[in-house]
Computed example of a mutant assay.
Amino acid sequence: MTYPLSELTKHIGIAFQGEDLTIDGIHTLSEATSTQLSFFNAEKYLDQLPHTKAAAVLIEEKYAKLLPSHTVALITDEPYLKLALASKFFAYKLETNSEAPAAGEGCDIDASVRFGKNVTLGDNVTILAGCYVGDHVTIGSGTLLHPNVTLYHHTRIGAGCMIHSGTVIGCDGYGFAHTKQGEHVKIYQNGNVVVEDNVEIGANCAIDRAVFGTTYIRKGTKLDNLIQIAHNCDVGEHSLCAAQVGLAGSTTLGRNVVMGGQSATAGHLKVGDFATIAGKGGVTKSLEGGKTYAGFPAIEHKMWLRMQAKIAGLLKGKK
């Protein structure tokens, strides 16, 4: 899908003059190409403005001078809201059409499985009753889908994976812009999910597609039941997440991270390699690898134990 920039700006309510451009997508400042639209709404990304390759950027007037000369400044006092309005134009068009997948040797597919268009299966893929595999999905050799798994369009599953019943991969992330009147406008999630080789995902998990780009579950990772992975997360290789873990958007876990049951992270932070988060731990800032953390907000486990001991001592003292 491509649109003239003049048409996009007309529909989202922004004045535009100058040479018209053809826009084929939306991406972040750092990732946008010369044919894509981007946006700027947070000063922590200020240093990215002079270096963006975006064709045009939704931006407040006071920051527009920081853009490179090749980038068109689309002036607005609501860049995030205008992004949401523009995202609808690039949303994937869903259809009910179905066709047989391109399947390798030895596949075992239940008759009740529903496929979208342009699905590719490796060798010895097993898909049990009630699954839905959407358009342009690829599934690697030796992967098993238990009953009632749903793979949304453009999801990529690696080889040797096991996905348990009720799990949904590629659903929309929870993204909305807000009007001055307090209304919530959907930001269409136009990325995808990639699950690498030898990943096991438990029952009733939800892994959201990226807003732009990709949500990653890296090779060898094992997810328990009832886990939420939000849009644009990157779960590192061989990580372990126990039941009811929740990762907010754009969280990055390093390799071999362990997260105990009901632990969670805030968004846009990083947890280093070989870190452990104890059960019910709440990660509110980026954490170094190689350490164990506990509590809310999560702190080093030894410090948390000392703090609990002091609190218990204070309570005993009051008696």
Rank of each mutant, 00 (worst) to 15 (best):
I127P: 07
F40E: 11
H51P: 00
E78C: 01
N256G: 03
A73P: 15
L67K: 09
C161D: 09
G289R: 05
V168N: 05
Y188E: 14
A243K: 00
L83W: 11
L314E: 15
F274I: 01
H154Y: 12
P50F: 06
H301E: 08
V119T: 07
A64S: 14
F176N: 13
Y293I: 08
P147W: 08
M259R: 07
N124R: 11
G279D: 02
E300M: 00
G282T: 08
L81M: 05
G272W: 08
D234Q: 08
G290D: 09
A86Q: 13
Y216D: 04
R255Q: 10
A266Y: 02
D224E: 13
C233N: 08
T96C: 00
G236L: 03
Y45V: 06
T71H: 10
A64L: 07
E31V: 01
K53T: 15
D208E: 15
I163E: 06
T155I: 01
F90A: 02
L37P: 13
V168D: 01
D20S: 09
I201Y: 06
L74N: 14
P68W: 10
N225Y: 01
G160N: 07
T215G: 08
L151I: 11
A84F: 00
S112I: 07
F176R: 12
D108W: 04
S34C: 09
G175Y: 03
L305T: 13
V194T: 15
V211M: 10
Y293A: 11
L85T: 06
P101E: 14
D197S: 07
G289A: 04
N198R: 11
G104Y: 00
I227F: 03
Y132L: 02
T214A: 07
D20C: 08
E31H: 09
N148C: 04
V113L: 08
E61M: 04
R156M: 10
V113S: 07
Q181E: 12
N148W: 00
T120P: 02
S6Y: 12
G170N: 02
I311F: 11
G25V: 02
G182T: 00
D208Q: 06
T221R: 04
I59S: 06
A264S: 14
K302E: 11
L240Y: 04
S112V: 05
N198T: 06
K302S: 10
D108M: 05
E61W: 03
L151H: 10
Y216C: 05
L81S: 08
D123R: 10
I299K: 12
G25H: 12
G106L: 01
T179C: 05
K280W: 06
A55Q: 04
G122E: 13
K219S: 13
M1E: 15
Y188A: 03
E105K: 15
G170L: 00
L314K: 14
G289P: 14
P79M: 02
N41L: 11
L247T: 06
A100R: 13
N124H: 13
L8V: 15
H268F: 00
L121Y: 09
V125P: 09
A111W: 04
S250Y: 00
K318P: 00
I109C: 07
S141N: 13
P297E: 07
K117S: 11
D47K: 12
S69L: 01
A64T: 05
T143M: 08
L83S: 04
T179F: 05
D208R: 02
L151Q: 11
D24P: 10
V199H: 05
G18C: 05
G202D: 09
G25K: 12
I299D: 08
V149Y: 01
